[in-house]
Amino acid sequence: MSNVSGAILVIAEHDNAALKPATLNAVTAAAKIANSLGGDIHLLVAGQGAEAVADAASKVAGVSKVLLADDAAYAHALPENLAPLVVGLAKSYGHVLAAATSEGKNLLPRVAALLDVAAISDITGVVSADTFERPIYAGNAIATVQSSDAIKVITVRTTAFEAAATGGSAAVESVAGTGDAGSAKFVGQELTKSERPELTQAKIVVSGGRGMQSGENFKLLEALADKLGAAVGASRAAVDAGFVPNDYQVGQTGKIVAPELYIAVGISGAIQHLAGMKDSEVIVAINKDEEAPIFQVADYGLVADLFKAVPELTSAV
């Protein structure tokens, strides 16, 4: 398999109306690879009626071309339909990247297997065009891995790369779709609605754990979050107990966040939770158990009953 150029293809994530910010982090990772290769960066927008997305994509700094594949088969990012499209295009590229979101993780390994190449998940660093850093064991070790495959298929941990700026003016080129594989059907979605910033994009995150005791008590955290302009997150225990929806979960198997400020309330600090937040700039922990492991990563630890401390904090900020 020969790749005709050192160009890099980044898969844009979107909802057919707007480009998702995670794409911008993936573009920055692509730019780091391009720096060592001198290659171009192209963005693929596959969707239905996604012209506005292609338009936004063309303005991302560093992107030289936008490929727009408009087809009803791509309306819901079903990997059964998208993978053949990406595989067809990938043969002209040296690298295929996407953000390590639920969508990117769903699609890229499927693409890699069809190309008979390894997939490199969740990179946090670019060492060179073929060598990358990625966390293993819930972030308790960092592996440096080298690929000898002709095409490198990579998902990018968004918190490890800045968002690319806007200011570009790439041309948009239409590409033909590959149709509906007919094996999977989108039935529906139940998206969590919130006025607050998105968890992975927020500058401040306030998270609650089992110590919150109920969904009702999360109102205490929401009041604090609203005052700080923060997003609300949770530990797995809080999600499993049904206090908040599953997409609030921060951790090894939930969302990875790295805000300027992370406030952990009633969370013990299991390694699986730390895996999702320990790269935050400033960490605050509020816990009544002074031995709780969360204090080992907290810049500021407050040993206190959360039901007293959180309302106090809310009125003090």
Partner: peptide, 24 residues
Amino acid sequence: PRLKTLKVAEPAKRKAGVKVADVA
């Protein structure tokens, strides 16, 4: 294996934090 692991390292450690006495 298709990927070669060149090295495995410990992640950067956070510097030790402090306990604060109260909300203020």
